[in-house]
Design a protein around this nucleic acid. Structure first.
Length: 724
DNA sequence: ATAGGGTTAG
């Protein structure tokens, strides 16, 4: 099956049948009848265009050079082929040699300038001196201005178009300019003002609404349109897929296949991407089979999307097989391959491929950096990061979130400041990662400054950032602020609810957490495993043992969620705090997996609080087995012995600890002091002057006001508060 | 058959 599809690639290359047609016509061209010559001419022009589009520039050139008779179309097609392959100088030389230029030749050259380096000045110069302009000429200039970020110029230019040229293509160019900048309302305005619309106008609007997630309105236009083509269908299907409506998207794909408009490789690319994202391997494999049976002439985009789909559903071998069968691969193919291995936890294989790939770009490096840090190998991530020839916001975000995921929050902050010093603009991901770092440090100072930065950059309505802010304020103990952020989220998702429920629970607001959980269920939202961690912890804080047990049971029975070790740890905590130590032990025994340190830690804490020596000993033993370097179990156990008056045993535990050389400090917390973060030991030997601790909101508002206003907004982040 | 709109990897 794959063999058959591989054969379709030959289409890009000079096939035997093509060569023979060519040779025959070339040698006998003078004897051919005029209409036959014209057919051959059209054939060659088409081949130049196809080869140009597919990146086979050599082949296009070869056909062009060997053509006995060229028309202006041949010259223009060749010019476009150069332009599409980034050969602007060759395009320009060819343009100068065209014997009789048409408007299309000029338009092609203007497009070449606009698409290669956005040289709108050169484009305009040519535009100004072309003898006859049409709508496409104006449209291309508008596109050029938009690409260079000169929207006002584009608008001005559009307004100045003479009435007789008010072709829909001009309005379409402005509409797509607005849509590229995400300015839907302005696009709608132009669309509504159009006297005459065409398929492109409608399709662009459908896509515009889809890109904003407004699929209902998009569908309204889609149904209202006088006619639809493959681009319209594909945009609509993709729109459904991107808002998470797989069934609608797949349904539309099915009706498309039953209709007259033919599916093309972009449609299939969208489908494979969706099947991968929704883990719908059945549909993915089915469509793959369809593609093979059709002998589809699949391009690199399509091949890449199939690879990605197979990796997402965990079919590593299938993905790998397809990669090596593709006889044309680009950087995206390689990046998809290494990213696929990273996703499937095969970091070593990913790294091996990374090292042998012919060309690496930012994405390749960033993929490996993120991959290593997710595996806990942050040293390797840092090493790769330093080796990178250039870095962008994504690479910096990868290394910063790498530190965050490995709980190295202060390092994350230090690198974030490094990023700002390099004047790399943070994106939503960077900021939400740094907010997690602030949450991890539980230092409001840092977190509030990042919040200020978020406001300055106008990212306060980003859903991910909002959830990170909720977590950050909660973890710092500012539940009111967290709740205020939460209430301002226009469309909270499961992550937002989880952040707030957990936030309430962690701060002892058990009732509030449970109320929010009920509200969430009433709104018809499905809780997930994180939700239950918050809910169980809320029950613990309020001492709702019975409810906690019921929620724990309902996880599996009502929602099909298998409790994880952390859920058990939370239950042990709940039972233990209520003094139900025997029940806690029973639950530990009933666990379907080996109890981890969290479980034993919860039991140890409960045993100490209820002065239960046997269970404390048991828990401490297991804890030491899990974390031999952690001093906590020794300290807690010896304290417990002291409390119950067993001085000898207490001394013995302390002795064992000393003999084993366990020195890792017990529970530390980070407290902000005058813009600096100091290690504050929970124990008795603290050297801290508590009077110096400033931890108030007034400090934060001062920080926010103190952010300077004259430099570029995002650069005004206060870097003096580096962590020392 | 040439000029304007949609799709893949971090």
């Amino acid at each position: 099956m794959l063999q058959k599809r591989a054969a379709t690639f030959v289409h890009h290359h000079p096939s035997r049948s093509y060569s023979s047609i060519f040779k025959q016509n070339f040698s006998n061209s003078s004897n051919l009848e005029p209409h036959k010559t014209s057919k051959f001419l059209i054939y060659c022009n088409t081949q130049i265009a196809i080869n140009g589009r597919d990146g086979n520039l050599k082949e296009a050139e070869s056909i062009f050079n060997r053509m006995p008779h060229k028309s202006t179309v041949s010259w223009t097609a060749m010019l476009t082929a150069y332009s599409q392959n980034g050969q602007i100088a060759k395009a320009r030389n060819l343009f100068d040699e065209i014997p009789d230029r048409t408007t299309a030749s000029y338009n092609a050259m203007i497009t070449a300038y606009v698409k290669n380096g956005s040289d709108v000045e050169e484009a305009y110069e040519l535009f100004a001196r072309m003898p006859v302009r049409n709508g496409v000429s104006y449209a291309t200039m508008i596109t050029g201005f938009v690409r260079r970020g000169m929207l006002d110029k584009a608008e001005e230019f559009y307004a100045d178009i003479p009435d007789e040229w008010r072709d829909p293509v001009c309005s379409n160019a402005l509409i797509s300019g607005y849509l590229k900048l995400g300015r839907l309302e302005e696009a709608v305005r132009v669309f509504k003002d159009m006297v005459e619309t065409d398929l492109v106008s409608w399709s662009s609007m459908v896509d515009g609404y889809c890109k904003k997630g407004r699929v209902l309105e998009a569908r309204g236009l889609f149904d209202m349109m006088p006619e639809r083509n493959v681009i319209t269908w594909t945009a609509m299907i993709d729109g459904y897929m991107k808002v998470g409506c797989f069934e609608n998207g797949f349904g539309l794909f099915s009706s498309m296949r039953r209709g007259v408009v033919k599916v093309n490789s972009n449609t299939l690319t969208v489908m494979f991407e969706a099947c991968g994202n929704f883990c719908r391997y059945r549909e993915g494999v089915q469509i793959h089979g369809l593609v093979s049976r059709m002998g589809f002439n699949f391009d690199i985009f399509l091949g890449n999307s199939i690879i990605t789909m197979y990796f997402r559903i965990g079919f590593v071998d299938e993905a790998n097989k397809i990669f090596w069968m593709m006889n044309k691969k680009d950087l995206v193919s390689w990046n998809s391959l290494i990213s696929g291995y990273v996703q499937n936890d095969e970091i070593e294989e990913a790294y091996r491929l990374f090292q042998i790939m012919p060309v690496k770009d930012l994405v390749s490096w960033t993929t490996m950096i993120a991959g290593f840090s997710n595996k806990g190998n942050i040293e390797k991530s840092v090493q790769l990061f330093r080796m990178m020839p250039e870095k962008d916001d994504f690479s910096w975000t990868a290394i910063i979130s790498g530190f965050v995921n490995n709980e190295l929050y202060e390092e994350a902050f230090r690198w974030f400041i490094g990023m700002l010093q390099k004047e790399i603009r943070p994106n939503q991901l960077t900021l939400s990662s740094v907010l997690s770092a602030s949450a991890g440090l539980a230092t409001l100072n840092q977190g509030a400054q990042v919040h200020a930065l978020v406001l300055k950059m106008g990212m306060e309505f980003d859903l991910y950032i909002q959830s990170s802010l909720v977590s950050m304020y909660s973890k710092c103990g500012y539940v009111a602020e967290a709740y205020w952020i939460f209430t301002n989220i226009s469309a909270p998702n499961i992550v937002s609810f989880n952040s707030m429920i957990t936030g309430f629970a962690q701060n002892g607001f058990g009732e509030e957490a449970l109320n929010l959980f009920r509200r969430m269920k009433n709104e018809g939202r499905e809780p997930n495993c994180i939700t239950f961690l918050g809910v169980l912890s809320a029950c613990t804080h309020v001492g709702l043992v019975q409810e906690g047990l019921e929620y724990f049971k309902s996880m599996k029975s009502s929602y099909g969620i298998q409790p994880e070790p952390d859920h058990y740890a939370s239950m042990i905590d709940l039972l233990g705090r209520a003094g139900l130590l025997d029940e806690a032990i029973d639950m530990i025994r009933s666990m379907p997996f080996k109890p981890h340190a969290g479980v034993w830690g919860a039991l140890l804490g409960a045993s100490r609080n209820h002065l239960h020596l046997d269970f404390a000993k048991l828990a401490a033993q297991h804890l030491i087995e899990w974390e031999p370097d952690n001093a906590s179990p020794y300290v807690i156990l010896s304290n417990l012995y002291s409390i119950v008056g067993k001085k000898m045993d207490a001394d013995q535990v302390r002795m064992t600890k000393k003999l084993k050389g366990v020195r890792k400090s017990p529970g530390c917390s980070w407290i902000t002091v005058k813009d600096k973060v100091h290690l504050f030991l929970a124990g008795e030997q603290s050297h801290m002057d508590l009077n110096k601790i400033r931890f108030t909101l007034s400090t934060i508002s001062k920080e926010m006001k103190g952010l300077s206003r004259h430099r570029e907004d995002w650069l005004s982040f206060d870097q003096s508060s580096d962590i020392s």
